[in-house]
């Protein structure tokens, strides 16, 4: 298909005995904001390194904008932007020096592509001459994004850009990504936070090197067809133990203030409340709830 920015065909990679990714197939459309959702060690970074031509897969192949990641890696490197998982800029260079450096090694200048980063860079401008290691987490991420964008890439690979960043900066970051999408850039972003899934157009859930599911975030959650309740009481730990003893409760997991209980289809909230009451729980609250991406993830694992 010509409309795909990224095509991943049956890619596997292992390091010695450790399998990082196995049999991954994935197509990402041009201009899509695609999320790779999964925990650390799930294979996200390996996949990113293969797609950015840093790593050769053991089997399979990947095509980015029509370029093979192994054979055409030189051409590929000119058109992609990559932001690795860890903060990977030079801590002892200033904001401006970092940006200028990355512009130069991509054979361009800040002025030439300033329109692309303007929105983001205005926030950094006051700290222009500050060393990168003296920036806050959110500011560092913004600088890293600017550096990844400065050569006007067609496809942007962002490996866990929101890890270790506070909620406000995370929110801002997603706004920036959506704006970049408006400019026609294909964005592949990974995150360990399930709650960020809804920010993407489509997501792939990845765990232990395998893709568990690919769909839009709403389709992923609405595809959860089991009966689910959110339950809480005054004693969380006892609640957890008690719920696990109930024969009709198939699965009970802590979910913030609540326990999420997957049950047989004919169970009602009142029934659960009644049983808990008889076991001595107080301030009981039981309500049917819709699944989150995290529920789906737990169910698939």
């Amino acid at each position: 298909m010509v409309n795909n920015a990224i095509e991943i065909n049956n890619i596997s990679k292992s390091y010695g005995d450790v399998t990082a990714v196995t049999g991954v197939n994935l197509n990402i459309a041009k201009g899509e904001l695609f999320g790779l959702i999964g925990p650390d060690g799930g294979g996200k970074t390996t996949l990113f390194q293969i797609l950015t031509s840093l790593l050769i897969p053991d089997t399979g192949h990947a095509i980015v904008e029509g370029l093979d990641t192994v054979k055409d890696f030189r051409k590929l490197r000119k058109i992609i932007g990559y932001m690795p998982g860890r903060f990977s800029l030079y801590p002892d260079l200033s904001v401006h020096e970092n940006l200028e450096f990355f512009a130069t090694i991509f054979n361009t200048t800040i002025e030439k592509n300033y329109h692309l980063i303007e929105d983001i860079y205005v926030q950094l401008e006051p700290f222009k001459s500050r060393r990168a290691d003296k920036l806050s987490g959110g500011m560092k991420q913004k600088l890293a994004l600017c550096c990844a964008l400065i050569h006007q890439p067609v496809v942007l690979f962002l490996d866990e850009p929101t890890t270790g960043v506070d909620a406000v900066s995370r929110e801002e970051f997603w706004v920036m990504l959506k704006r970049l999408k408006q400019k026609g850039i294909t964005i592949l972003v990974s995150t360990p936070y399930m709650d960020e899934a809804s920010q993407c157009e489509r997501i792939a859930l990845i765990q232990d090197g395998r893709i568990l599911q690919v769909n839009t975030p709403t389709a992923v959650t609405s595809g959860f067809d089991k009966t689910l309740f959110a339950v809480r009481s005054d004693d969380s730990y006892k609640l957890l133990l008690d719920l696990r003893t109930l024969p009709f409760a198939k699965r009970t997991e802590p979910f913030g203030e609540y326990m999420h209980v997957t049950t047989e289809p004919d169970v009602t909230a009142e029934y659960i409340a009644q049983i808990l009451n008889s076991r001595g729980h107080k301030s009981i609250e039981v309500k049917p709830t819709s699944a989150t991406v995290e529920d789906v993830f737990l169910d698939l694992m």
């Binding site: 999964g38 925990p39 650390d40 799930g42 890890t163 270790g164 360990p192 399930m194 765990q207 004693d235 969380s236 730990y237 006892k238 957890l240 997991e253 802590p254 995290e294 993830f297 737990l298 694992m301």
Partner: peptide, 21 residues
């Protein structure tokens, strides 16, 4: 608990609940 999978994270919180209990 940064970055661990949802199952692992829950196992961890269960340990915490138990200690608190």
């Amino acid at each position: 608990t940064g970055g661990v999978d949802p199952v692992t994270r829950r196992q961890f919180w269960e340990m915490i609940y138990e200690s608190a209990n």
